[in-house]
Design a protein around this nucleic acid. Structure first.
Lengths: 126, 126
DNA sequence: GTATATGCAAACAATTTGCACGCCT
DNA sequence: AGGCGTGCAAATTGTTTGCATATAC
Protein backbone atom coordinates (compact mmCIF):
# COMPACT_ATOMS: atom_id res chain seq x y z
CA UNK A 1 0.00 0.00 0.00
CA UNK A 2 1.53 3.23 -1.22
CA UNK A 3 1.45 6.45 0.76
CA UNK A 4 -1.27 8.97 0.03
CA UNK A 5 -2.00 12.33 1.58
CA UNK A 6 -5.74 11.58 1.52
CA UNK A 7 -5.36 8.31 3.41
CA UNK A 8 -3.09 9.90 5.99
CA UNK A 9 -5.63 12.63 6.72
CA UNK A 10 -8.53 10.17 6.82
CA UNK A 11 -6.73 7.95 9.32
CA UNK A 12 -5.77 10.95 11.43
CA UNK A 13 -9.38 12.15 11.50
CA UNK A 14 -10.87 8.78 12.43
CA UNK A 15 -8.24 8.31 15.13
CA UNK A 16 -8.86 11.74 16.58
CA UNK A 17 -12.51 11.22 17.50
CA UNK A 18 -14.53 8.88 19.65
CA UNK A 19 -17.83 9.73 17.93
CA UNK A 20 -17.89 6.63 15.66
CA UNK A 21 -18.21 8.69 12.51
CA UNK A 22 -19.92 7.76 9.25
CA UNK A 23 -18.16 8.09 5.89
CA UNK A 24 -20.05 11.34 5.32
CA UNK A 25 -18.82 12.88 8.54
CA UNK A 26 -15.26 11.90 7.68
CA UNK A 27 -15.76 13.33 4.18
CA UNK A 28 -16.80 16.70 5.61
CA UNK A 29 -13.78 16.74 7.90
CA UNK A 30 -11.31 15.78 5.17
CA UNK A 31 -12.65 18.50 2.92
CA UNK A 32 -11.61 21.08 5.51
CA UNK A 33 -8.01 20.02 4.83
CA UNK A 34 -8.20 18.72 1.24
CA UNK A 35 -11.13 20.63 -0.29
CA UNK A 36 -11.32 18.69 -3.55
CA UNK A 37 -11.25 15.20 -2.04
CA UNK A 38 -14.00 12.93 -3.32
CA UNK A 39 -16.44 10.79 -1.38
CA UNK A 40 -15.33 7.72 -3.36
CA UNK A 41 -11.78 8.23 -2.13
CA UNK A 42 -13.01 8.47 1.43
CA UNK A 43 -14.91 5.18 1.11
CA UNK A 44 -12.00 3.44 -0.63
CA UNK A 45 -9.56 4.51 2.05
CA UNK A 46 -11.87 3.69 4.94
CA UNK A 47 -12.24 0.18 3.50
CA UNK A 48 -8.49 -0.17 3.12
CA UNK A 49 -7.88 1.02 6.66
CA UNK A 50 -10.39 -1.53 7.92
CA UNK A 51 -8.74 -4.31 5.91
CA UNK A 52 -5.30 -3.40 7.22
CA UNK A 53 -6.64 -3.33 10.76
CA UNK A 54 -5.94 0.32 11.34
CA UNK A 55 -9.56 1.08 12.16
CA UNK A 56 -12.74 -0.88 12.82
CA UNK A 57 -16.12 -0.80 11.10
CA UNK A 58 -19.35 -1.27 12.96
CA UNK A 59 -22.78 -1.29 11.50
CA UNK A 60 -25.52 0.92 12.71
CA UNK A 61 -28.63 -0.04 10.81
CA UNK A 62 -27.98 0.59 7.15
CA UNK A 63 -24.94 2.80 7.73
CA UNK A 64 -21.34 1.89 8.47
CA UNK A 65 -19.61 3.70 11.30
CA UNK A 66 -15.86 3.77 11.78
CA UNK A 67 -13.87 3.54 14.97
CA UNK A 68 -10.22 4.42 15.40
CA UNK A 69 -10.07 3.11 18.94
CA UNK A 70 -8.66 -0.37 18.50
CA UNK A 71 -8.83 -1.89 21.97
CA UNK A 72 -11.59 -4.54 22.15
CA UNK A 73 -14.71 -2.87 23.47
CA UNK A 74 -18.46 -2.83 23.11
CA UNK A 75 -20.98 -0.17 22.18
CA UNK A 76 -24.10 1.26 23.69
CA UNK A 77 -26.51 3.27 21.57
CA UNK A 78 -29.00 5.61 23.18
CA UNK A 79 -32.47 5.14 21.71
CA UNK A 80 -33.26 8.79 22.32
CA UNK A 81 -30.23 10.77 21.14
CA UNK A 82 -28.61 8.05 18.99
CA UNK A 83 -25.22 8.66 20.55
CA UNK A 84 -22.97 5.62 20.52
CA UNK A 85 -20.93 5.25 23.69
CA UNK A 86 -17.95 2.99 24.22
CA UNK A 87 -18.35 0.33 26.85
CA UNK A 88 -15.36 -1.36 28.38
CA UNK A 89 -15.99 -5.02 28.84
CA UNK A 90 -14.21 -8.24 29.61
CA UNK A 91 -13.93 -9.21 26.00
CA UNK A 92 -11.65 -12.14 26.45
CA UNK A 93 -13.84 -13.54 29.16
CA UNK A 94 -16.88 -13.51 26.90
CA UNK A 95 -15.04 -15.25 24.09
CA UNK A 96 -13.53 -17.76 26.46
CA UNK A 97 -16.85 -18.47 28.12
CA UNK A 98 -18.67 -18.81 24.83
CA UNK A 99 -16.05 -21.05 23.30
CA UNK A 100 -16.66 -23.35 26.27
CA UNK A 101 -20.40 -23.41 25.66
CA UNK A 102 -20.65 -23.88 21.90
CA UNK A 103 -19.13 -26.12 19.24
CA UNK A 104 -18.06 -23.13 17.19
CA UNK A 105 -14.70 -21.34 17.27
CA UNK A 106 -15.45 -17.73 18.09
CA UNK A 107 -12.75 -15.35 16.95
CA UNK A 108 -14.45 -12.03 17.49
CA UNK A 109 -17.75 -10.47 18.41
CA UNK A 110 -19.63 -7.24 18.66
CA UNK A 111 -21.99 -6.53 21.49
CA UNK A 112 -24.43 -3.78 20.70
CA UNK A 113 -26.46 -2.47 23.56
CA UNK A 114 -29.44 -0.17 23.43
CA UNK A 115 -31.25 1.86 25.99
CA UNK A 116 -31.38 5.35 27.43
CA UNK A 117 -28.06 7.01 28.15
CA UNK A 118 -27.06 8.83 31.31
CA UNK A 119 -27.52 12.24 29.63
CA UNK A 120 -31.05 11.44 28.48
CA UNK A 121 -32.36 9.63 31.52
CA UNK A 122 -33.22 12.81 33.42
CA UNK A 123 -35.52 14.18 30.76
CA UNK A 124 -37.15 11.11 29.26
CA UNK A 125 -40.27 9.20 30.00
CA UNK A 126 -39.70 6.74 27.19
CA UNK B 1 -54.04 -3.27 12.08
CA UNK B 2 -56.45 -4.93 9.71
CA UNK B 3 -56.20 -8.54 8.60
CA UNK B 4 -54.44 -9.30 5.33
CA UNK B 5 -53.76 -12.61 3.65
CA UNK B 6 -50.27 -11.41 2.64
CA UNK B 7 -49.28 -10.52 6.19
CA UNK B 8 -50.58 -13.81 7.55
CA UNK B 9 -48.50 -15.79 5.06
CA UNK B 10 -45.40 -13.67 5.67
CA UNK B 11 -45.63 -14.17 9.41
CA UNK B 12 -46.20 -17.90 8.99
CA UNK B 13 -43.14 -18.17 6.73
CA UNK B 14 -40.81 -16.23 9.04
CA UNK B 15 -42.02 -18.22 12.02
CA UNK B 16 -41.49 -21.53 10.27
CA UNK B 17 -37.75 -21.18 9.71
CA UNK B 18 -34.63 -20.72 11.80
CA UNK B 19 -32.52 -19.56 8.86
CA UNK B 20 -32.79 -15.80 9.62
CA UNK B 21 -34.15 -14.98 6.18
CA UNK B 22 -33.74 -11.78 4.19
CA UNK B 23 -36.71 -9.95 2.66
CA UNK B 24 -35.83 -11.50 -0.69
CA UNK B 25 -35.94 -15.01 0.65
CA UNK B 26 -39.32 -14.33 2.25
CA UNK B 27 -40.51 -12.79 -1.01
CA UNK B 28 -39.62 -15.97 -2.93
CA UNK B 29 -41.43 -18.10 -0.37
CA UNK B 30 -44.57 -15.94 -0.33
CA UNK B 31 -44.74 -16.04 -4.11
CA UNK B 32 -45.14 -19.79 -3.94
CA UNK B 33 -48.44 -19.19 -2.16
CA UNK B 34 -49.44 -15.74 -3.46
CA UNK B 35 -47.78 -15.51 -6.88
CA UNK B 36 -48.54 -11.84 -7.54
CA UNK B 37 -47.37 -10.49 -4.18
CA UNK B 38 -44.99 -7.55 -4.49
CA UNK B 39 -41.64 -7.03 -2.83
CA UNK B 40 -42.84 -3.69 -1.44
CA UNK B 41 -45.65 -5.47 0.37
CA UNK B 42 -43.18 -7.94 1.83
CA UNK B 43 -41.02 -5.12 3.17
CA UNK B 44 -44.01 -3.18 4.52
CA UNK B 45 -45.34 -6.21 6.34
CA UNK B 46 -41.96 -7.28 7.70
CA UNK B 47 -41.58 -3.78 9.13
CA UNK B 48 -45.03 -3.90 10.65
CA UNK B 49 -44.39 -7.31 12.17
CA UNK B 50 -41.17 -5.99 13.69
CA UNK B 51 -42.96 -2.92 15.08
CA UNK B 52 -45.69 -5.04 16.61
CA UNK B 53 -43.09 -7.34 18.14
CA UNK B 54 -44.15 -10.41 16.24
CA UNK B 55 -40.71 -10.90 14.73
CA UNK B 56 -37.21 -9.46 15.21
CA UNK B 57 -34.87 -7.76 12.78
CA UNK B 58 -31.15 -8.19 12.92
CA UNK B 59 -28.64 -6.56 10.67
CA UNK B 60 -26.11 -8.49 8.76
CA UNK B 61 -23.90 -5.96 7.02
CA UNK B 62 -26.06 -3.97 4.63
CA UNK B 63 -28.96 -6.43 4.69
CA UNK B 64 -31.70 -6.90 7.23
CA UNK B 65 -32.45 -10.43 8.36
CA UNK B 66 -35.65 -11.45 10.11
CA UNK B 67 -36.14 -13.84 12.96
CA UNK B 68 -39.41 -15.38 14.10
CA UNK B 69 -37.90 -16.96 17.18
CA UNK B 70 -38.70 -14.47 19.92
CA UNK B 71 -36.89 -15.79 22.97
CA UNK B 72 -33.86 -13.62 23.82
CA UNK B 73 -30.84 -15.15 22.17
CA UNK B 74 -27.60 -14.29 20.43
CA UNK B 75 -26.18 -15.06 17.01
CA UNK B 76 -23.02 -16.58 15.68
CA UNK B 77 -22.06 -16.09 12.04
CA UNK B 78 -19.59 -18.42 10.39
CA UNK B 79 -16.96 -16.47 8.44
CA UNK B 80 -16.67 -19.31 5.95
CA UNK B 81 -20.21 -20.41 5.11
CA UNK B 82 -22.05 -17.28 6.34
CA UNK B 83 -24.58 -19.38 8.21
CA UNK B 84 -26.09 -17.62 11.20
CA UNK B 85 -26.59 -19.90 14.18
CA UNK B 86 -28.66 -19.21 17.24
CA UNK B 87 -26.76 -19.10 20.52
CA UNK B 88 -28.54 -19.48 23.81
CA UNK B 89 -27.14 -17.12 26.36
CA UNK B 90 -27.79 -15.73 29.79
CA UNK B 91 -29.38 -12.59 28.43
CA UNK B 92 -30.67 -11.27 31.69
CA UNK B 93 -27.32 -11.78 33.35
CA UNK B 94 -25.56 -9.71 30.74
CA UNK B 95 -28.05 -6.87 31.03
CA UNK B 96 -27.97 -7.01 34.80
CA UNK B 97 -24.21 -7.06 34.93
CA UNK B 98 -23.88 -4.24 32.44
CA UNK B 99 -26.46 -2.09 34.16
CA UNK B 100 -24.30 -2.39 37.26
CA UNK B 101 -21.17 -1.27 35.43
CA UNK B 102 -22.42 1.70 33.41
CA UNK B 103 -24.48 4.82 33.98
CA UNK B 104 -26.82 3.94 31.14
CA UNK B 105 -30.10 2.05 31.29
CA UNK B 106 -29.72 -0.91 29.01
CA UNK B 107 -33.01 -2.26 27.75
CA UNK B 108 -31.84 -4.66 25.09
CA UNK B 109 -28.77 -5.80 23.24
CA UNK B 110 -27.55 -7.87 20.38
CA UNK B 111 -24.43 -9.93 20.63
CA UNK B 112 -23.02 -10.88 17.27
CA UNK B 113 -20.31 -13.45 17.24
CA UNK B 114 -18.07 -14.45 14.35
CA UNK B 115 -15.76 -17.34 13.77
CA UNK B 116 -15.69 -20.76 12.16
CA UNK B 117 -18.66 -22.99 12.79
CA UNK B 118 -18.62 -26.62 13.85
CA UNK B 119 -19.46 -27.77 10.31
CA UNK B 120 -16.62 -25.80 8.71
CA UNK B 121 -13.89 -26.37 11.27
CA UNK B 122 -12.86 -29.75 9.83
CA UNK B 123 -12.10 -28.46 6.37
CA UNK B 124 -10.73 -24.98 6.96
CA UNK B 125 -7.29 -23.61 7.49
CA UNK B 126 -8.47 -20.05 7.71
C1' DG C 1 8.37 4.27 -16.01
C1' DT C 2 4.97 1.76 -13.80
C1' DA C 3 1.52 0.86 -10.84
C1' DT C 4 -1.39 2.51 -7.36
C1' DA C 5 -4.44 6.39 -5.91
C1' DT C 6 -7.48 9.94 -7.22
C1' DG C 7 -11.77 12.73 -8.78
C1' DC C 8 -15.75 12.34 -11.01
C1' DA C 9 -19.91 10.38 -12.23
C1' DA C 10 -22.48 6.53 -13.18
C1' DA C 11 -23.91 2.05 -11.33
C1' DC C 12 -25.55 -0.79 -7.68
C1' DA C 13 -28.22 -3.06 -4.03
C1' DA C 14 -31.33 -2.85 -0.40
C1' DT C 15 -35.10 -0.56 1.11
C1' DT C 16 -38.80 2.92 1.01
C1' DT C 17 -42.50 5.57 -0.92
C1' DG C 18 -46.38 7.71 -4.01
C1' DC C 19 -50.30 6.57 -6.23
C1' DA C 20 -54.39 4.48 -8.03
C1' DC C 21 -56.98 0.50 -7.15
C1' DG C 22 -58.76 -3.44 -4.20
C1' DC C 23 -60.50 -5.60 -0.22
C1' DC C 24 -61.43 -6.00 4.89
C1' DT C 25 -64.71 -4.61 8.30
C1' DA D 1 -68.89 3.40 2.60
C1' DG D 2 -64.55 4.38 4.40
C1' DG D 3 -59.96 3.53 5.07
C1' DC D 4 -56.17 0.45 5.41
C1' DG D 5 -53.48 -2.76 2.41
C1' DT D 6 -51.82 -3.84 -2.14
C1' DG D 7 -49.17 -3.96 -6.69
C1' DC D 8 -46.40 -1.47 -9.40
C1' DA D 9 -42.76 1.44 -10.43
C1' DA D 10 -40.07 5.23 -9.39
C1' DA D 11 -37.33 7.37 -5.78
C1' DT D 12 -34.02 7.27 -2.11
C1' DT D 13 -29.92 6.10 0.53
C1' DG D 14 -25.52 4.34 1.37
C1' DT D 15 -21.85 2.38 -0.92
C1' DT D 16 -19.09 0.69 -4.86
C1' DT D 17 -16.97 0.88 -9.34
C1' DG D 18 -15.12 2.23 -14.20
C1' DC D 19 -12.34 5.27 -16.30
C1' DA D 20 -9.05 8.75 -17.46
C1' DT D 21 -5.69 11.48 -15.07
C1' DA D 22 -2.33 12.36 -11.31
C1' DT D 23 1.17 10.96 -8.12
C1' DA D 24 4.34 7.95 -5.27
C1' DC D 25 8.33 5.40 -5.60
Amino acid sequence: MRYSHQREEILKIVQSTRCHPTADWVYDEVRKVIPNVSLGTVYRNLNQLVNTNNINALNDGPVIRYDGFMEMHDHFKCKKCDTIYDIDHHSMNIIYELNQNTNHTISNYSLNLEGICCDCVETTNN
